[in-house]
Design a protein around this nucleic acid. Sequence first.
DNA 1: CCCACAAATTATAACGTTATAAATACGATG
DNA 2: CATCGTATTTATAACGTTATAATTTGTGGG
Lengths: 347, 347
Amino acid sequence: MDTGTSAGTSATARNRSGKPTLRTVAERTGFAVTTVSRALADDPRISEKTRALVAKAAQELGYVPDRAAQRLRTGRTKVISLLINPEHEFLGFTDELLAGIVGTLRGTGYSVNIIPDFVEGDRTAPIRNILRNNLADGLIFSRTECFDERVRLLLEEDFPFVSHGRTEFSMPHPFVDYDNEAFARAAVNRLVAKGRTHLSIILPEARFTFAGHLRYGFMSAAREAGVRYDIPENVTLSLAPEALTKHLTGQMEHPDGPDGYVCVGEVSALATLAALSDSGKVLGHDIDVMAKRASPVFDLLRPRLETVYEDVRATGETIADLLMKRIEGTPPRELQIVKAPIGDFGT
Amino acid sequence: MDTGTSAGTSATARNRSGKPTLRTVAERTGFAVTTVSRALADDPRISEKTRALVAKAAQELGYVPDRAAQRLRTGRTKVISLLINPEHEFLGFTDELLAGIVGTLRGTGYSVNIIPDFVEGDRTAPIRNILRNNLADGLIFSRTECFDERVRLLLEEDFPFVSHGRTEFSMPHPFVDYDNEAFARAAVNRLVAKGRTHLSIILPEARFTFAGHLRYGFMSAAREAGVRYDIPENVTLSLAPEALTKHLTGQMEHPDGPDGYVCVGEVSALATLAALSDSGKVLGHDIDVMAKRASPVFDLLRPRLETVYEDVRATGETIADLLMKRIEGTPPRELQIVKAPIGDFGT
DNA sequence: CCCACAAATTATAACGTTATAAATACGATG
DNA sequence: CATCGTATTTATAACGTTATAATTTGTGGG
């Protein structure tokens, strides 16, 4: 019986910090701690009536399970680790990815834990640490390489993860990627349609898988269209922005330079616009530029570029979603998604 | 005695997952679990000799303490929570702040946990959750308001935190802020020195403390210089970027519009440049713009703006630093830092 | 050689949870 | 009415650590 009037007056057990535990709920309801634990987990071995009673009492007491205790007992951390890189081709890449991930994980009980992924040196070190110390139930990372050590290690250890970007391993693993080949093709085609005959692109470092996709899409579309193209060696998106600008300016000032550029991200696009300005060329007249944008601030750039959209936030949401499924046991082969470019150049 | 040759062959206790625990180290060394625990914590009650022996054995076995168990026993989580906001006046603000925090916390054993801070609704909700579930040992957040509910709550609960930005409460609390008043003053002075006589600025929403600092610096410097100034009502940095551009374009097209702008961040600066372009005005001729930048990509903007630098990454480092000190007991009054603008306009 | 006292180590319990095994209660069956 | 099987509940132990209290060891003084 619940008196209803004596809330808080009974001498129910409370721990040192005053927070209710399973024991508090047990004493309040008269059931054993084990029963309460099971009732709250909706264990079918506990009768419906008891489950309802316990749920009500827990609610009234404001009981929430202690994460550390659950973790110690079960070995599950309810933590997802995200490896973050300091550098990206997009501005605010991490911001957006994180927003997507965190937004999706909201209400699942999982929290997101940030681990720096300093690209120099051994990229598996932070992962080994997570595995060894059992710091997370799942892992997310980006800047995936063709033969990514991290993927190899995680597959070996059978640890749940979703990568942003594919690898070239034969063994399937969960990933969310963007169709960079399609993007590059579309950009080339659009430049060709505008009458451009000499195209160029600055690629990411070759070790990253998407560099290959971009290169393939760019080259094959250019060949099919029968236009000339240049892909500079030794110049990648990893270079400092000013170095990119300097390179592009030099290229543009050359009498026989490219008249059409494909830009893989915002940094690249800004560098191209700067070079355009520095070399005195006029967008749409001397040169055309097609870019991929990931953030709405791109619309603030002048002169306006023709772009398609890569929704990094949505990517984060999908990644979180797939990771939850992976943790629940869905096989890797069913957790591979390639997102199409959004929108059409020039609209 | 250590045979030296039988590494791994002895039947030392290992837990289910095969990871060494205190017990493993205890059996290996012959000491009690308690002794090992203390030895590893460099407890002076344990003799030097024993400490060395235990340390060596732990090292050899690859022992690392179990976080969940420590957390359950001590109540300390070794976790720092960071509330992140989806919107900011800087591009990649979270990226940079996070990089600073995570970089500094590296090697301290603390990890960073991300909590979304959806500005609509009750901003204390996520914090209450952290307090109730004991999910962290310390808290970091930004976008601090003059009378910030979060600060009030955390002070009340005596929970360690460092805010990015001050409040106007009389009770001291730890914070790291940027001297926005000095920035605004300097920007105004520079515009005046360039002969500008009618200045404007778009401020953050008034509830944020730094809006007041900017306003005060801007207004008082303008008054002292005896120049006209405009601060639009109902137009704040919270508006969508296009709305900002539209507003600014309208202002610039007005025959009696401002001839000098102070921009508080990159979004604002980009909007101003876009408006400049859209209204056909020329930077340096019709209008001058002074901005605060936080990222190196700013250098890619054309036309080039005169800027000072706010180092958000360094801010993150300082915040993490202060938070560690706060957790160790340093009083709040000693943990208040205001960072000066870096660099000089026009250099 | 015994005792007091400090130094060093150890035993025990507890943090809050869940897995395992054991114990009840409840009908239905013969 | 004894018995069995099932449904429901409970007792016990354990996850790996650290705080508290108890014990052992060592040392110098009388």
